[in-house]
Design a protein around this nucleic acid. Structure first.
Length: 332
DNA sequence: AAAATAGACAACCGCACCTCT
DNA sequence: TAGAGGTGCGGTTGTCTATTT
Protein backbone atom coordinates (compact mmCIF):
# COMPACT_ATOMS: atom_id res chain seq x y z
CA UNK A 1 0.00 0.00 0.00
CA UNK A 2 1.33 3.38 -0.88
CA UNK A 3 1.67 6.31 1.35
CA UNK A 4 -1.27 8.62 1.73
CA UNK A 5 -0.79 11.98 0.06
CA UNK A 6 0.44 14.75 2.29
CA UNK A 7 -2.59 16.84 1.53
CA UNK A 8 -5.82 17.01 -0.38
CA UNK A 9 -4.45 18.20 -3.67
CA UNK A 10 -7.88 18.96 -5.01
CA UNK A 11 -8.55 21.57 -2.37
CA UNK A 12 -5.21 23.28 -2.08
CA UNK A 13 -3.86 26.38 -3.70
CA UNK A 14 -0.67 26.21 -5.66
CA UNK A 15 1.71 28.74 -7.03
CA UNK A 16 2.69 32.08 -5.62
CA UNK A 17 1.61 33.00 -2.14
CA UNK A 18 -0.57 36.02 -1.60
CA UNK A 19 0.10 38.60 1.10
CA UNK A 20 -2.96 37.43 2.92
CA UNK A 21 -1.76 33.85 2.97
CA UNK A 22 1.64 34.96 4.18
CA UNK A 23 0.09 36.94 6.99
CA UNK A 24 -2.08 34.05 8.04
CA UNK A 25 0.92 31.77 8.18
CA UNK A 26 3.02 34.28 10.10
CA UNK A 27 0.26 34.94 12.57
CA UNK A 28 -0.35 31.28 13.13
CA UNK A 29 3.31 30.41 13.68
CA UNK A 30 3.80 33.40 15.95
CA UNK A 31 0.97 32.14 18.08
CA UNK A 32 1.51 28.43 17.96
CA UNK A 33 5.08 27.99 16.88
CA UNK A 34 6.45 25.69 14.21
CA UNK A 35 5.67 22.05 13.97
CA UNK A 36 3.04 19.65 12.70
CA UNK A 37 3.05 21.08 9.22
CA UNK A 38 0.52 18.58 8.06
CA UNK A 39 -2.23 19.93 10.27
CA UNK A 40 -1.07 23.54 10.15
CA UNK A 41 -2.89 24.61 6.98
CA UNK A 42 -6.24 23.52 8.32
CA UNK A 43 -5.63 25.08 11.71
CA UNK A 44 -4.40 28.29 10.17
CA UNK A 45 -7.23 28.43 7.66
CA UNK A 46 -4.95 28.08 4.68
CA UNK A 47 -5.79 26.18 1.55
CA UNK A 48 -2.23 25.01 1.18
CA UNK A 49 -0.30 21.82 1.49
CA UNK A 50 1.61 21.49 4.75
CA UNK A 51 4.83 21.09 2.86
CA UNK A 52 4.12 24.26 0.99
CA UNK A 53 3.57 26.11 4.26
CA UNK A 54 6.79 24.78 5.68
CA UNK A 55 8.72 25.82 2.60
CA UNK A 56 7.18 29.25 2.52
CA UNK A 57 8.03 29.81 6.17
CA UNK A 58 11.55 28.45 6.02
CA UNK A 59 12.56 30.05 2.77
CA UNK A 60 10.75 33.32 2.88
CA UNK A 61 8.85 34.30 5.99
CA UNK A 62 11.18 33.34 8.83
CA UNK A 63 12.14 36.50 10.69
CA UNK A 64 15.81 35.64 10.99
CA UNK A 65 16.36 35.49 7.26
CA UNK A 66 19.00 37.71 5.78
CA UNK A 67 17.83 39.32 2.61
CA UNK A 68 19.96 40.88 -0.04
CA UNK A 69 23.00 39.99 -2.03
CA UNK A 70 25.62 37.53 -0.98
CA UNK A 71 28.88 39.04 0.12
CA UNK A 72 32.23 38.04 -1.30
CA UNK A 73 33.02 36.25 1.95
CA UNK A 74 29.81 34.30 1.74
CA UNK A 75 30.65 33.39 -1.84
CA UNK A 76 34.01 32.00 -0.86
CA UNK A 77 32.60 30.16 2.10
CA UNK A 78 29.95 28.55 -0.06
CA UNK A 79 32.58 27.47 -2.55
CA UNK A 80 34.74 25.97 0.18
CA UNK A 81 31.86 24.23 1.84
CA UNK A 82 30.62 22.92 -1.47
CA UNK A 83 34.03 21.48 -2.20
CA UNK A 84 33.79 19.65 1.10
CA UNK A 85 30.17 18.71 1.22
CA UNK A 86 28.95 18.66 -2.33
CA UNK A 87 25.34 19.54 -3.00
CA UNK A 88 24.40 19.35 0.64
CA UNK A 89 22.68 22.70 0.60
CA UNK A 90 21.11 22.37 4.00
CA UNK A 91 24.51 21.68 5.51
CA UNK A 92 26.03 24.60 3.72
CA UNK A 93 23.13 26.79 4.77
CA UNK A 94 23.78 25.78 8.35
CA UNK A 95 27.09 27.58 8.13
CA UNK A 96 25.60 30.72 6.67
CA UNK A 97 23.36 32.39 9.20
CA UNK A 98 20.24 33.84 7.69
CA UNK A 99 20.58 31.98 4.44
CA UNK A 100 18.40 29.10 3.36
CA UNK A 101 19.36 25.99 1.52
CA UNK A 102 17.08 26.92 -1.33
CA UNK A 103 18.60 30.35 -1.60
CA UNK A 104 22.11 28.99 -1.61
CA UNK A 105 21.20 26.33 -4.12
CA UNK A 106 19.73 28.92 -6.45
CA UNK A 107 22.65 31.23 -5.92
CA UNK A 108 25.05 28.43 -6.67
CA UNK A 109 23.30 27.53 -9.90
CA UNK A 110 22.94 31.08 -11.12
CA UNK A 111 26.09 32.82 -9.91
CA UNK A 112 28.78 30.70 -8.39
CA UNK A 113 28.82 28.05 -11.07
CA UNK A 114 29.52 30.72 -13.62
CA UNK A 115 32.06 32.37 -11.39
CA UNK A 116 34.00 29.15 -10.98
CA UNK A 117 33.80 28.40 -14.67
CA UNK A 118 35.26 31.81 -15.42
CA UNK A 119 38.10 30.95 -13.06
CA UNK A 120 38.65 27.76 -14.97
CA UNK A 121 37.37 25.59 -12.17
CA UNK A 122 34.91 22.80 -12.56
CA UNK A 123 32.03 23.62 -10.18
CA UNK A 124 31.34 19.99 -9.49
CA UNK A 125 34.80 18.66 -8.88
CA UNK A 126 36.46 21.93 -7.87
CA UNK A 127 39.35 20.95 -10.03
CA UNK A 128 40.88 22.90 -12.82
CA UNK A 129 39.03 22.50 -16.07
CA UNK A 130 42.37 21.97 -17.77
CA UNK A 131 43.20 19.12 -15.49
CA UNK A 132 42.89 15.67 -16.88
CA UNK A 133 39.59 14.25 -15.82
CA UNK A 134 40.42 11.72 -13.18
CA UNK A 135 36.81 11.04 -12.27
CA UNK A 136 36.86 9.74 -8.76
CA UNK A 137 40.14 7.93 -8.94
CA UNK A 138 42.93 9.82 -7.35
CA UNK A 139 46.45 8.58 -7.03
CA UNK A 140 47.31 8.68 -3.36
CA UNK A 141 50.49 6.77 -3.03
CA UNK A 142 52.94 5.00 -5.22
CA UNK A 143 51.26 2.10 -6.86
CA UNK A 144 48.00 2.86 -5.13
CA UNK A 145 44.80 4.56 -6.07
CA UNK A 146 42.04 5.47 -3.74
CA UNK A 147 38.50 5.78 -4.90
CA UNK A 148 36.01 7.40 -2.65
CA UNK A 149 32.75 5.81 -3.50
CA UNK A 150 30.65 7.13 -0.72
CA UNK A 151 30.99 9.12 2.40
CA UNK A 152 29.00 9.88 5.44
CA UNK A 153 29.37 12.72 7.81
CA UNK A 154 28.10 12.81 11.29
CA UNK A 155 27.86 16.24 12.78
CA UNK A 156 27.46 16.03 16.47
CA UNK A 157 26.71 19.38 17.99
CA UNK A 158 26.55 19.28 21.74
CA UNK A 159 22.81 19.63 21.90
CA UNK A 160 21.49 17.85 18.90
CA UNK A 161 23.37 15.20 16.99
CA UNK A 162 22.66 15.20 13.32
CA UNK A 163 23.36 12.46 10.90
CA UNK A 164 24.39 13.58 7.49
CA UNK A 165 25.21 11.61 4.47
CA UNK A 166 26.78 12.60 1.28
CA UNK A 167 28.64 11.24 -1.61
CA UNK A 168 32.00 12.72 -2.26
CA UNK A 169 34.36 12.49 -5.11
CA UNK A 170 37.18 13.72 -2.97
CA UNK A 171 39.84 11.67 -1.40
CA UNK A 172 40.30 11.86 2.35
CA UNK A 173 43.62 13.63 2.10
CA UNK A 174 42.13 16.38 0.04
CA UNK A 175 39.16 16.77 2.31
CA UNK A 176 41.33 16.75 5.39
CA UNK A 177 43.58 19.38 3.97
CA UNK A 178 40.59 21.49 3.10
CA UNK A 179 39.08 21.16 6.54
CA UNK A 180 42.41 22.02 8.03
CA UNK A 181 42.68 25.12 5.91
CA UNK A 182 39.22 26.21 6.94
CA UNK A 183 40.02 25.74 10.57
CA UNK A 184 43.28 27.57 10.27
CA UNK A 185 41.79 30.49 8.41
CA UNK A 186 38.93 30.61 10.85
CA UNK A 187 36.49 30.79 8.01
CA UNK A 188 34.75 27.82 9.40
CA UNK A 189 33.10 29.62 12.24
CA UNK A 190 31.89 26.44 13.65
CA UNK A 191 29.99 26.00 16.75
CA UNK A 192 31.81 23.73 19.05
CA UNK A 193 30.68 20.73 17.18
CA UNK A 194 32.34 17.46 17.03
CA UNK A 195 32.33 16.38 13.45
CA UNK A 196 32.64 12.78 12.63
CA UNK A 197 33.34 12.08 9.03
CA UNK A 198 32.91 8.56 7.87
CA UNK A 199 34.55 7.97 4.58
CA UNK A 200 33.86 4.75 2.89
CA UNK A 201 36.61 4.24 0.46
CA UNK A 202 37.70 1.69 -1.92
CA UNK A 203 41.42 1.34 -1.97
CA UNK A 204 42.63 -0.25 -5.11
CA UNK A 205 45.97 -1.78 -4.53
CA UNK A 206 47.81 -2.21 -7.74
CA UNK A 207 50.87 -3.86 -6.50
CA UNK A 208 51.77 -6.14 -3.70
CA UNK A 209 53.41 -4.26 -0.95
CA UNK A 210 53.58 -5.07 2.68
CA UNK A 211 52.70 -2.37 5.10
CA UNK A 212 54.61 -1.59 8.13
CA UNK A 213 53.14 0.35 10.93
CA UNK A 214 55.35 3.27 11.58
CA UNK A 215 54.86 6.94 11.16
CA UNK A 216 57.97 8.11 12.90
CA UNK A 217 59.91 10.71 11.06
CA UNK A 218 56.87 12.43 9.69
CA UNK A 219 57.34 16.08 9.17
CA UNK A 220 54.75 18.63 9.99
CA UNK A 221 55.65 20.89 7.12
CA UNK A 222 54.62 18.51 4.48
CA UNK A 223 51.29 17.54 3.17
CA UNK A 224 50.06 14.66 5.19
CA UNK A 225 51.44 11.45 3.87
CA UNK A 226 48.97 9.47 1.96
CA UNK A 227 47.74 6.15 3.04
CA UNK A 228 50.09 3.36 2.42
CA UNK A 229 48.71 0.81 0.09
CA UNK A 230 46.78 -1.99 1.53
CA UNK A 231 48.71 -5.12 1.09
CA UNK A 232 47.52 -7.22 -1.73
CA UNK A 233 47.86 -10.71 -2.82
CA UNK A 234 51.06 -11.06 -4.80
CA UNK A 235 50.61 -9.74 -8.28
CA UNK A 236 46.91 -9.42 -7.87
CA UNK A 237 44.65 -6.46 -7.91
CA UNK A 238 42.29 -6.20 -5.08
CA UNK A 239 39.78 -3.73 -3.86
CA UNK A 240 39.47 -3.00 -0.21
CA UNK A 241 36.60 -1.56 1.66
CA UNK A 242 37.87 0.93 4.13
CA UNK A 243 35.69 2.85 6.51
CA UNK A 244 37.25 5.86 8.06
CA UNK A 245 35.83 8.02 10.73
CA UNK A 246 37.13 11.50 11.04
CA UNK A 247 36.61 13.45 14.18
CA UNK A 248 37.09 17.15 14.34
CA UNK A 249 37.06 18.20 17.90
CA UNK A 250 38.73 20.24 20.49
CA UNK A 251 42.27 19.61 21.53
CA UNK A 252 41.20 18.62 24.98
CA UNK A 253 37.91 19.27 26.63
CA UNK A 254 39.66 21.14 29.39
CA UNK A 255 41.54 23.40 27.05
CA UNK A 256 38.50 24.76 25.29
CA UNK A 257 38.46 28.45 25.01
CA UNK A 258 35.42 29.60 23.21
CA UNK A 259 33.57 32.79 22.71
CA UNK A 260 30.20 31.45 22.09
CA UNK A 261 26.94 32.96 21.15
CA UNK A 262 24.80 30.00 21.76
CA UNK A 263 21.54 29.68 19.97
CA UNK A 264 18.59 29.68 22.23
CA UNK A 265 17.21 26.83 20.24
CA UNK A 266 18.95 23.86 18.78
CA UNK A 267 16.47 23.64 15.99
CA UNK A 268 18.61 25.52 13.56
CA UNK A 269 22.29 25.87 13.17
CA UNK A 270 21.89 29.16 11.47
CA UNK A 271 22.23 31.29 14.51
CA UNK A 272 24.92 29.23 16.05
CA UNK A 273 28.18 30.93 15.58
CA UNK A 274 30.97 30.16 17.90
CA UNK A 275 34.38 31.27 16.99
CA UNK A 276 37.05 28.72 17.35
CA UNK A 277 39.72 30.11 19.54
CA UNK A 278 41.40 26.91 20.28
CA UNK A 279 43.53 24.48 18.45
CA UNK A 280 41.34 21.79 17.13
CA UNK A 281 42.48 18.38 16.35
CA UNK A 282 41.43 16.19 13.56
CA UNK A 283 41.33 12.56 14.12
CA UNK A 284 40.76 9.71 11.82
CA UNK A 285 39.88 6.39 13.16
CA UNK A 286 38.94 3.60 10.93
CA UNK A 287 38.22 0.03 10.29
CA UNK A 288 39.48 -1.74 7.29
CA UNK A 289 37.74 -4.77 6.11
CA UNK A 290 39.48 -7.18 3.85
CA UNK A 291 36.63 -9.21 2.58
CA UNK A 292 38.40 -11.19 -0.03
CA UNK A 293 41.48 -12.25 1.80
CA UNK A 294 42.13 -14.77 4.42
CA UNK A 295 45.34 -13.58 5.93
CA UNK A 296 45.36 -10.84 8.47
CA UNK A 297 46.70 -7.71 6.94
CA UNK A 298 47.49 -4.41 8.48
CA UNK A 299 46.45 -1.06 7.19
CA UNK A 300 48.30 1.84 8.61
CA UNK A 301 47.13 5.33 7.89
CA UNK A 302 48.86 7.78 10.12
CA UNK A 303 48.59 11.33 9.01
CA UNK A 304 49.70 14.28 10.92
CA UNK A 305 49.38 17.91 10.22
CA UNK A 306 50.37 21.08 11.96
CA UNK A 307 52.80 21.60 14.76
CA UNK A 308 51.59 18.99 17.10
CA UNK A 309 53.61 16.50 18.94
CA UNK A 310 55.42 14.17 16.71
CA UNK A 311 55.36 10.70 17.73
CA UNK A 312 55.15 7.19 16.80
CA UNK A 313 52.31 5.64 15.07
CA UNK A 314 49.18 5.53 17.14
CA UNK A 315 47.87 2.52 15.40
CA UNK A 316 46.44 -0.13 17.54
CA UNK A 317 46.53 -2.79 14.96
CA UNK A 318 44.93 -5.89 16.20
CA UNK A 319 45.46 -9.28 14.87
CA UNK A 320 42.66 -11.32 13.51
CA UNK A 321 40.77 -11.74 10.33
CA UNK A 322 39.40 -8.23 10.49
CA UNK A 323 41.67 -5.43 11.39
CA UNK A 324 40.96 -2.35 13.31
CA UNK A 325 43.26 0.56 13.25
CA UNK A 326 43.18 3.97 14.71
CA UNK A 327 44.39 6.54 12.30
CA UNK A 328 45.28 9.79 13.91
CA UNK A 329 45.51 12.88 11.87
CA UNK A 330 46.40 15.56 14.23
CA UNK A 331 46.47 19.28 13.83
CA UNK A 332 47.58 21.19 16.85
C1' DA B 1 7.05 49.53 -28.65
C1' DA B 2 6.66 44.76 -28.99
C1' DA B 3 8.56 40.27 -29.08
C1' DA B 4 12.14 37.21 -27.86
C1' DT B 5 15.49 35.71 -24.75
C1' DA B 6 18.00 35.23 -20.48
C1' DG B 7 18.39 35.43 -15.64
C1' DA B 8 16.75 34.98 -11.01
C1' DC B 9 14.29 32.89 -7.65
C1' DA B 10 10.05 30.97 -5.55
C1' DA B 11 7.66 26.87 -5.37
C1' DC B 12 6.69 22.06 -6.37
C1' DC B 13 7.64 17.09 -6.55
C1' DG B 14 9.37 12.83 -5.29
C1' DC B 15 12.23 10.42 -2.44
C1' DA B 16 14.75 9.33 1.81
C1' DC B 17 15.14 9.47 6.53
C1' DC B 18 13.44 9.48 11.23
C1' DT B 19 10.21 8.45 14.79
C1' DC B 20 6.50 6.17 16.68
C1' DT B 21 3.51 2.32 17.33
C1' DT C 1 10.75 -5.73 13.19
C1' DA C 2 7.83 -3.76 9.93
C1' DG C 3 4.73 -0.35 8.54
C1' DA C 4 2.80 4.26 8.64
C1' DG C 5 3.09 9.05 9.15
C1' DG C 6 5.69 13.30 9.40
C1' DT C 7 9.43 15.96 8.00
C1' DG C 8 13.45 17.45 5.43
C1' DC C 9 16.28 17.52 1.34
C1' DG C 10 17.76 17.97 -3.41
C1' DG C 11 16.47 18.33 -8.14
C1' DT C 12 13.47 20.41 -11.23
C1' DT C 13 9.97 23.42 -12.98
C1' DG C 14 7.28 27.58 -13.34
C1' DT C 15 6.88 32.36 -13.27
C1' DC C 16 8.26 36.95 -13.01
C1' DT C 17 11.49 40.59 -14.34
C1' DA C 18 15.20 42.60 -16.90
C1' DT C 19 17.62 42.95 -21.05
C1' DT C 20 18.31 42.56 -25.88
C1' DT C 21 16.85 42.54 -30.63
Amino acid sequence: MGRSPCCEKAHTNKGAWTKEEDQRLIDYIRTHGEGCWRSLPKSAGLLRCGKSCRLRWINYLRPDLKRGNFSEEEDELIIKLHSLLGNKWSLIAGRLPGRTDNEIKNYWNTHIKRKLMSRGIDPQTHRSLNEKPTSAVVPVAPATTTTITAAAVTVTPPAKPTQLDFKSAHDPAQSMAEISRLLQSNTMKANNSILDFKFQTVVKAESAEENNCSSSGMTTDEEPPLPRPVSAAAGGERREELNLELTIGLATPSSRSLTTTRPSSASSGNSAESKLQFHPYLQFSGTAATPTTTAAEAVCLCWQLGGGARGNCHCQCSSGGRQQQQIRYQYC
